[in-house]
C-alpha cells in the first residue's frame, strides 16, 4: 500500500514548549507506557496463535488418545456407524485443492504478465481492480452462486458432454460408485476454489514480477526475445521463489476454504472420490456440515481433531510460503 500523504504540518501542541524543558511527567511515564502497550499488543498476535494451538490440542485430546493416528488412515466419517475417519476428507481436500491450483496458477501467471508487461499502467489498474474485487467477494456468495448456477451447469452440460465422449473413459473422469450426476462434485468445488484463489496468486505474482530488475528485462528484450520468452526464461527464474510462495499462499487458502466448498462438494463422507465428477468432502466442509450433528463428547473431540489437522496442514504451507517469499525478497533485493 502506498496511501501516504505525508504532511509535516507543525503539530498542534507540545514539542515547542516541551522540547527544551527537562523530561516532565508524560515524558517519563509516557514512553515506557506506550512501549509496553505496543509490546503487549504485538505479542498478543503471537500469543493468540499459540493459544489456538493449545486449545485445539487440549480439546481434541479425547479423540487423539482414543483414535490416535488411525484417524488419518480410516476412510469414512460416520460417527453413528462408529467410524471416525479423516481419510475421505483428506483425499477430497487434496483433490479439490489440486484442481484449483492447476487451473488458478497458470491463469494467475499470465494475468500477472498482462498486468506487468502487456498493458499500460492505467489499463493494468482497471484490470487489477476487477481481479481484486473478486477477492473481496465473501465465500458464501461464491457458494450460493455455485449452488444455483454452476452446479446445474456442470450437471446438465459439462458432465454429460464428458461422459458421452472418450474423455469419460479416462481414470479421473470416469464416474465412480458415488457418482450423482456430476453437479455436486470435486470438480465443481475445485473450479470455484480456483476462482477464489486466483486473485491472491495474481497479486503476489504481479508483485514479484515487478521486482525483477528493469535492466535484466531490457537485456532480455535486447537479445531479441519475445515478451513470453523474457517472462519464462528470465523473469520467472528471478521471481520463482516468490511465485512458489504465492502458490503456497493460494494453496493454504484453497485447503481451508469452507463455505463455498460446503455448498458444492456434495458432502459424501464415506469414501475417497474415484473421479473428479464424484461428490466428496473436505476437512473444512466436513467440520462445517457435521458440527451441529455431533452429539457425543467423542464426536465433538474428533471434529476438533480434524480442525487441528487442518490447522497443522495449513501451517506447513503458510510457513513454506513465508520462507519462499523471504527468499524472493532476498534474491531480488526488493520488498514484497
Amino acid at each position: 500500500m502506498s496511501t501516504l500523504d505525508i504532511d509535516v504540518r507543525p503539530q498542534a501542541g507540545p514539542p515547542r514548549g516541551a522540547a527544551k524543558a527537562a523530561p516532565r511527567g508524560h515524558r517519563r511515564f509516557g514512553d515506557p507506557v506506550f512501549r509496553v502497550v505496543a509490546l503487549v499488543c504485538g505479542l498478543s498476535v503471537a500469543i493468540a496463535m499459540f493459544t489456538l494451538a493449545g486449545v485445539l490440542i487440549y480439546n481434541s485430546w479425547t479423540a487423539i488418545s482414543e483414535l490416535g493416528l488411525s484417524f488419518l488412515t480410516t476412510v469414512a466419517w460416520s460417527p453413528n456407524g462408529g467410524s471416525y475417519g479423516a481419510l475421505a476428507a483428506l483425499a477430497g481436500t487434496a483433490m479439490t485443492t489440486v484442481v484449483a491450483m492447476v487451473i488458478a496458477v497458470p491463469l494467475a501467471l499470465v494475468i500477472a504478465l498482462l498486468l506487468t508487461e502487456l498493458v499500460p499502467p492505467r489499463v493494468a489498474r482497471v484490470i487489477g481492480t476487477g481481479i481484486e474485487m473478486l477477492a473481496a467477494i465473501p465465500s458464501i456468495i461464491f457458494g450460493m452462486w455455485g449452488l444455483f448456477v454452476l452446479v446445474p451447469f456442470m450437471q446438465e452440460r459439462v458432465a454429460p458432454l464428458v461422459m458421452d465422449s472418450w474423455l469419460g473413459e479416462l481414470p479421473l473422469l470416469r464416474p465412480g460408485p458415488m457418482f450423482q450426476g456430476g453437479g455436486f462434485s470435486i470438480l465443481t468445488a475445485g473450479l470455484v476454489l480456483a476462482v477464489m484463489v486466483l486473485p491472491f496468486i495474481t497479486a503476489f505474482s504481479r508483485d514479484v514480477l515487478l521486482m525483477v530488475p528493469r535492466v535484466t528485462k531490457e537485456a532480455g528484450y535486447g537479445m531479441g526475445s519475445t515478451t513470453w520468452e523474457v517472462l519464462h526464461k528470465i523473469s520467472l527464474r528471478y521471481a520463482l521463489s516468490g511465485i512458489v510462495g504465492a502458490t503456497f499462499i493460494g494453496l493454504g487458502r484453497a485447503l481451508g476454504e469452507t463455505m463455498a466448498v460446503a455448498y458444492l462438494v456434495g458432502g459424501s463422507f464415506l469414501s475417497v472420490p474415484q473421479s473428479l465428477f464424484d461428490p466428496g468432502t473436505t476437512i473444512a466442509s466436513l467440520i462445517a456440515l457435521q458440527f451441529n450433528e455431533a452429539t457425543t463428547k467423542l464426536d465433538i473431540s474428533a471434529l476438533i481433531y480434524m480442525g487441528l489437522i487442518l490447522f497443522a496442514i495449513t501451517m506447513v504451507f503458510q510457513v513454506l510460503a513465508q520462507i519462499w517469499l523471504r527468499r524472493a525478497r532476498r534474491t531480488t533485493g526488493g520488498r514484497a
Binding site: 485445539l56 499462499i249 485447503l255 501451517m315 504451507f317
Partner: peptide
C-alpha cells in the same frame, strides 16, 4: 492463513 473454520472451532 489460518482457515476461518479453524478459528470458529477454536
Amino acid at each position: 492463513g489460518i482457515p476461518s473454520i479453524v478459528v470458529g472451532v477454536f
